[in-house]
Every structure is written in structure tokens, then in C-alpha cells.
Simulated assay, not measured.
Amino acid sequence: MSSTSTAPPPRVVVFGLGGTIAMTSSTGGAVSPALSTQQLVDAVPGLADAGIDIEVVDFRRRPGASLTITDITELTAAATDALANGANGVVVTQGTDTIEETAYLLDLLHHRPEPLVVTGAMRNPTLAGADGPANILSAIHTAASTHAREQGCLVVFADEVHAARWVTKTHSTSGDTFRSLDTGPLGYVLEGTLRMLTRVPHRLTLPPPHLAEHARVGLHTVTLDDDPTVLDAIGARVDGLVIAGFGVGHVPEPLVDTLGTLAGRIPVVLASRAPAGPTLTRTYGFPGSEQDLITRGLIPAGWLHPYKARILLRALLNATANPQDIATAITTAGGLTAPTAWPWPITDNQPTETSTTDA
């Protein structure tokens, strides 16, 4: 007689942080985070038939705007423990206000191969057409899939799967707000199946931060006829600074001397305030151009969005990286230098399987 063995179902741990997806009101008025993670999972149609074991953890109940670097650092440690104890993947539910930043920080700190998936909702559970249940279901299918391994942190929204390093929130109310403007999504969840169309080429991760460190990193968006006194006030109080410049990395000429002085004291990253596209390095040569600012010590961010650049710079400072490693990490994350320049080990994610979908 032959015996057959059945593999155990995949196990996914869902960590709830609060946010719109968990908001309700007992009075019918304005909503706030009140629902437990178990309540969110219990409200997902079709999840019971998905063949996936679910565990839930009420980790925080906060609006997305009130999450902190410490919250996400502690979440990373908890998710790592869950995966080390046999979970196949982790889902994080949170407010959408900060997903593009928290997901990128998770991507930098998540070293394991299992999927770490972030999702949320644009319409709270009291509204018609609330999108939370559908997003949770797609996120869980993604986290349970072997084809999402070695992709770092992913953001799943409206059945689209995005890389944390590229995704951004593009609309304040639309249900399909999350877009990867420069690349498009990595794949989709269709009929309960993850279908990956492409993959991140490599993963860039950082050493764990020192929780006692709280580096102050500012973000200044350059505007027409900008005043250097604002930069003077910010620069005196921060450990690092990101400049969101015009176009490919330009600033008004009156800011140039102040930025050069700051770059001699703290790391100053030059990004673009445009929604998509990179900073350049050697096309323009006038005072305040990208080439001029780089010669004054600013670090070009390349394809790295200003919000992501701030997260990376703060994580680097919290990990007490040296100045040369900081500059190299920024330019590597922004695609201006080869991945092999990354100061820490990287993972090459070339696909090893002929199929990119789960049957």
C-alpha cells in the first residue's frame, strides 16, 4: 500500500497597527481606530475557504499619521520572530497616510526571505464599499505565496502588488491611490492567486538600528523664490537633511551657499520634488543646478523619492553608519551606483522558477 502525505497549509500572521481600515464610531460621527485585528480578519469574505492558517496580533491601534520609527522597528522584530517560528508570511494592516514610508523602512530592516506585506483601506468599515476586507484577502494570499519570497516588503492594494521601494500614495481619497509611477506594479492577485509579472532585481537591507538613537532628519521642499533663512533655521536643529529640489535637482541660487555650508556639517541629500523621475548628476551647470550642488557636497538621490530618502537617511544615522557609507547607500538605493557598491550584503533576486504564479 502506498501512503500519501498532505503538506500543512501555509501560515500567515496578521499584525494590526490601526488606521482607517480599523476605524469605526459608536455614535455615527467621526471615526477612530477601534476594531481589533481579529475583527478585521473575521470580516473578510472567502478567507475561511482560502486554505490558509491565520494568526492575529493586535500590535498598535493608532492612525497612520501617529506611527513612529520605533513602532516600525519593533514591528520588524516581532515579524522576524513570527517568521523564525514557522510562519510563511506576515501581513501588516495600517493607516494609508504613511504606508509609503513605513513599508520602505520595513523593506530596509526585513532580512528574511518570507514575504512581508503591508495593506490598509481608503474607506473605513462604516462606509458603503469599504475596501479593507478585499485588501486584507489579497495581502494574505500574497503573504502565503512562495512566489513573493525574496521580494522584501510589498504593498498590496486594490489587487495590485507593489515593491515598497517604489510605491507612493498618489491621491488623498481614491481607492487605487497606491502607484509605482516609475515602474508599475510587480504583479496582481487574481482569483485568489498571486501572479508576479516581474521581480525586484535585488534587496538592499540595513543593520538593525540602535533603538536609543533618534536621529533628527529634516525634509525641505524647495519652492519659488525660496528663502535661505528657513534652511538656516532647519539646518541648525537636524542631524541630516533631504532637499526636494525642482525638476532634476535644482534650487534657487540664494540657497546655494547655505546648502554647501550644511553639507560640510551633516549629510544633505538632493532629491526631486517631482512625483516621478530621477535627479541627474551632470547635465546642468548653473549655480543651484544638480552638478553645482553635488560639487558642494550634496548627495544625489537618483530615483529615490524624497520621503524614501528621508527614511533611508534616518535609518542610516540610527545605525551609526559612517559618512562614506551613507553617501554610497543613498546613491546605490537611488540607482546611481551599482548594487554591489551597497556597504552591506545584498540579495540577488533573479527568478529561479519557470513560473511566476501559484497554481
Rank of each mutant, 00 (worst) to 15 (best):
D227Q: 15
H220C: 00
I266L: 08
L270Q: 06
L67T: 10
T332A: 12
I234Y: 03
A271T: 03
G277A: 04
R273P: 01
I346E: 02
Q324G: 09
L255A: 07
A236K: 09
R273K: 15
V230A: 13
M23N: 00
A233W: 09
V230W: 08
T6N: 12
S272W: 10
A22N: 10
T20H: 04
G285M: 08
H220I: 07
G175N: 09
V268T: 07
D292M: 07
A263G: 02
L75G: 02
T6C: 05
L219K: 07
E74G: 01
N349E: 11
G152H: 06
H147L: 05
G240K: 05
H210Q: 15
R61Y: 09
S172M: 09
G297D: 02
H220L: 08
S272V: 13
P343D: 04
V31A: 14
A341Y: 10
A148N: 00
V91W: 10
G132V: 01
E114G: 03
P125G: 00
G46K: 12
V90D: 06
L127W: 00
G29C: 13
P300R: 06
T68C: 03
P113H: 06
G302C: 00
S25T: 07
P10T: 03
V256G: 05
E114L: 08
V242G: 02
G245T: 09
I69R: 14
A315R: 13
L40H: 06
P33R: 07
A271G: 02
L336R: 07
N124S: 08
L206P: 04
L108Y: 04
V189P: 05
T221Q: 11
L206K: 01
T27N: 15
A301C: 10
T70V: 12
P10K: 12
A215L: 06
V230Y: 10
